[in-house]
Design a protein around this nucleic acid. Structure first.
Lengths: 334, 334
DNA sequence: ATGAAAGCGCTAACAT
DNA sequence: ATGTTAGCGCTTTCAT
């Protein structure tokens, strides 16, 4: 099954290969209407489809961007990926997705693969673990414009990032619970020493301090869901149980919710629980989760715009921080 | 920021560009050990990364396969995508993912994009809706080896598919509930007139008939989660409520679960609920869901192997059906 | 064992 | 308005 080339089209249309290009690209030079029609007919009858590899090789632009995330099956990343895809599609670009599986080596492998596929830019959501090691240099080495997503760019890298207002979100949630009359507001979080989840916890702590409440009332859990639930149960049945929980991610909140229900606690009656993320599952729990929603569509658009600026300008592009908003549902007691 | 080319490496290593290729590809011709080392050093110091576009253009193989699914954020597809990625990665291939969003036009657009990017093969999970329209021809037209996943290939297409034993799974679930003593076993399903979900419902019906139970005790719901729950509630509170529900997908089962709980029913005490899929969320509901698990890893591997056979052999490759297994948890009453 | 050279299918500058 | 031609960076067949 031979590939149909531009030559074949030209032959059938009785013209030169160049003209076929001009028709396909609407330029860079004009084509007589009659010729254009002959060419279009030839394309149609032959079922000609331009070889994008050749096109990209020649023109040095692939109209393809790379997106690397830790795990696109986690709700947050799922939505993020979708948003980027939509924005890219609208801009006529294709997205190549890579899952780093929270593994630095895998991440690097993908970055190199993408770079060698000549993507025109890379969007990277770094995994949160292994923060301060072989930082920054990686993206710069690639020789491809890149933007960090959901994570501050490494200090010395000069790279740009697009972020969400995590700190502000953490405070907002906490203030909402305080307004509900809660005082023993615990923070349920992972163990990351920095990054978005850390910022959320910081936001909680800031709001606690501002209300003269205890900013060290924290439960740090592992990554495994089963042990998380056991830890939460122990906390709730311990000597000083919280009367409200701010979880730094929806998944964590959902785990806390079911853990509480397993030991007979009513939510929000006995315990208020709020999450962070606003992705699908949070709306379908019982009770539905009060949480912080992310403007994913804006995020995707902004990520692409920022990448475009980075591509054009040699000098550094400023970071962007997108605002987040409180989604009030039932689990807070509203 | 100039791209480092094979020329540059050759110059630095004091050899010809061809030799650089021989080193990179371990062939097709031998290279003297000393030369090889000089070349590798040059590659290292220059940070040379072969241009995959040029390589693919020249060698007519891209080592890249396309995967099109309706929505990679749905748990089932998420796992499927992951499995394919793993299998592809193991085989040294890259996966280009496209989400058709259950839209036939979008699906076609992706298929054409992928074909024109010269992928070496395409794996397609068709959306279930709009079954019998412009069938089959699409994949054949592309001139790219392709395999249908999770869906029988259109009758006249001669294309190969890799499937799961959906019918068998539906029966297995139903037989399990019958063994629990249930008789009023309802089937909760979508509206698809064929495809995997339809096969599951058929499996349920077959098991019902085999036990001389009513094989028309079905609730068909829309796609929207809210209305699904309302319909389920109405069913459970109606004149002839089921005492067990076989849902044709985990998501549906989860909705039924929370709908039942909202109206005060205890699961599995008052009502047994079983799902189909065995993806993450089904394990983390309360009670955890008894369901049909899919051998995703095998599925991914088999999909890739099948694609490879299709690539080599001109004649038709037979379909594959993978077995599924019952995952017994709590929601059935076990 | 290695160098030179011919393309892969395309774009875009050079021609007319 | 259109034809001719020189590459993009690579693989691979000719040469030697």
């Amino acid at each position: 099954m031979q590939q149909v080339t531009r030559q074949d089209v030209a032959r059938l249309a009785g013209t030169s290969p160049a003209v076929v290009s001009y028709v396909l690209n609407n330029g860079p030079r004009p084509v007589a209407p009659s010729t254009r029609i002959r060419v279009q007919d030839a394309i149609e009858t032959l079922g000609y489809r331009p070889n994008q590899l050749a096109r990209a090789l020649r023109s040095q632009r692939s109209n393809t961007i790379g997106l690397v995330v830790p795990d696109s099956s986690e709700a947050f990343f799922t939505e993020l990926v979708h948003a980027v895809e939509q924005a890219a599609f609208a801009a006529g670009s294709l997205v190549l997705l890579g899952n780093s599986r929270f593994d630095r080596r895998q991440e690097l492998r993908y970055l190199e693969s993408l770079a060698s596929m000549q993507v025109s830019g890379i969007l990277l959501v770094r995994s949160e673990s292994g923060e301060s090691e072989t930082e920054g240099r990686d993206l710069a080495d690639l020789g491809v414009p890149a933007v960090y997503l959901n994570h501050r760019a490494p200090r010395d890298s000069g790279a740009t990032s697009v972020l969400l207002a995590n700190h502000r979100g953490g405070s907002t949630l906490t203030e909402h619970l305080i307004a509900h009359g809660h005082r023993r507001i615990g923070c349920l979080t992972g163990t990351a020493p920095s990054g978005p989840v850390f910022d959320r916890a910081e936001g909680w702590a800031a709001a606690m301090r501002a209300a003269a409440l205890d900013p060290s009332f924290v439960l740090r859990t592992g990554l495994d869901r089963h042990s998380t639930r056991e830890q939460v149960k122990a906390w709730l049945q311990g000597p000083e149980p919280p009367d409200a929980i701010v979880a730094t991610a929806d998944g964590l909140a959902l785990d806390a919710l079911s853990a509480a229900q397993e030991i007979g606690l009513r939510v929000p009656g006995d315990l208020a629980v709020v999450g962070f993320g606003g992705t699908g599952p949070s709306a379908h729990s019982w009770p539905p989760l009060t949480t912080i929603g992310h403007p994913f569509a804006d995020f995707g658009r902004l990520a692409l715009e920022t990448l475009t600026s980075v591509q054009k300008q040699a000098q550094s592009v400023p970071d962007h921080v997108l605002d987040v908003d409180l989604i009030v549902r039932r689990s807070c007691g509203c």
